[in-house]
Design a protein around this nucleic acid. Structure first.
Lengths: 198, 198
DNA sequence: GCTTAAAGCTAACGCAGATAGCTAACCGGG
DNA sequence: CCCGGTTAGCTATCTGCGTTAGCTTTAAGC
């Protein structure tokens, strides 16, 4: 029996690809094993459990998303950066539904690696907002607002939640422009330092 | 053996309550059976399968949410109605995390009953926006924007996604006011309202 | 070439969803 | 009041999946 030459990273990568096809929740050890050309129990030489595999996919997906967002916004600032961010975000979610579902699960509080991957995307978001949002502590509110809105839209769309025939691209642009104008507009309260994790 | 006097509705209700406690995805026939004081196989006299039970919980939850939203906004209009809607929405999600997770799954396209329950909340949302949002087809954009933002915020919060110490109530109010001002701002016919265009 | 770590396999266990088929509780008509 | 039909509930059992145990074989290093 020739060896498959597997490695933990290869199993995680196959799992991520499979998650995009069958859905993150439908992922099973059997499917992944079949995909990499190995019997189910052999996977346990590379990953500790299905849960560990899911965690690995989450971390990888968060990094990929953060990377995509960083690339999309580099060299831009202000409202333009926010538009590029929003555009790249939605595109990535639609292209990688399984991976995206993996990123949604909150990272375990005492999982250092997962938290770091999770914070990456947040830092990019805060950087993007630095040019067009409110300063100081209000930046956290702005980050939460933008993240919530984009996440909400993308996850509803990804789940097929928009039944009406109205053009979805257009609705998304509408939402993004509302946010941009809203974030730039107000002001008021301040103080406190910028945070770490949203 | 005295009978438990069970009925399909009672099983669904117990399942919904349990989902709030252990999470929608962690729901199992065994847990529900234990809760209603019966052996697992007996549940199949009342529900066809775990999937059918989940569907029942989804429908019931959607109705409850729609009902809550309707009660919260009755007699109000304009921005005030939107605030009441947003407030009631978040409150309900936090109080019923399992039920809320149930409402998030997209209803099966050819499931009449589920679609109806799903449309109920949408109709209330459109009614609420009638007073403060754009008219005509743009109302769909407005509805999607508001729904996406509230859903995104509530689901992230419910999943523990906000790690920073910043006051979450405040962030929510911030988001809601952005939306209100953004939705009320324009009013014109075509093109995405505040800035960009198709 | 021989040793050895590990990559792969088959066999098997436990648990959850689900089905089959028996038993006994309730309900209605005589 | 009893008798028969309906059906809620039970035990026993099957299946599928995650997981573990333990053997076999590959391939890497001396």
């Amino acid at each position: 029996m020739p060896r498959a030459g597997l490695a933990p990273a290869a199993v995680v990568a196959a799992g991520a690809a499979l998650a995009d096809e069958v859905g993150f929740t439908n992922l099973s050890m059997g499917l992944v094993a079949e995909r990499v050309g190995v019997r189910t129990p052999s996977l346990y030489k590379h990953v500790d459990s299905l849960e560990a595999l899911r965690r690995g996919i989450s971390i990888q997906a968060r990094r990929e998303l953060a990377d995509t967002l960083a690339r999309a916004t580099v060299g831009r600032s202000g409202p333009d950066a926010v538009r590029a961010f929003a555009q790249a975000y939605r595109r990535w979610v639609l292209d990688h539904p399984g991976r995206y579902a993996a990123t949604v699960r909150a990272p375990d509080l005492d999982d250092q690696e997962d938290r770091e991957a999770s914070d990456e995307a947040l830092r990019i978001l805060l950087d993007v907002l630095a040019g067009s949002g409110p300063p100081g502590a209000d930046a956290v509110d702005a980050a939460r607002a933008l993240r919530s809105a984009l996440h909400g839209f993308a996850s509803l769309e990804s789940a097929g939640g928009f039944g009406l025939p109205r053009d979805v691209d257009r609705s998304y642009r509408f939402l993004v422009e509302i946010l941009i104008s809203g974030l730039g507009a107000d002001g008021s309260d301040d103080s406190t330092s910028p945070g770490e994790t949203a």
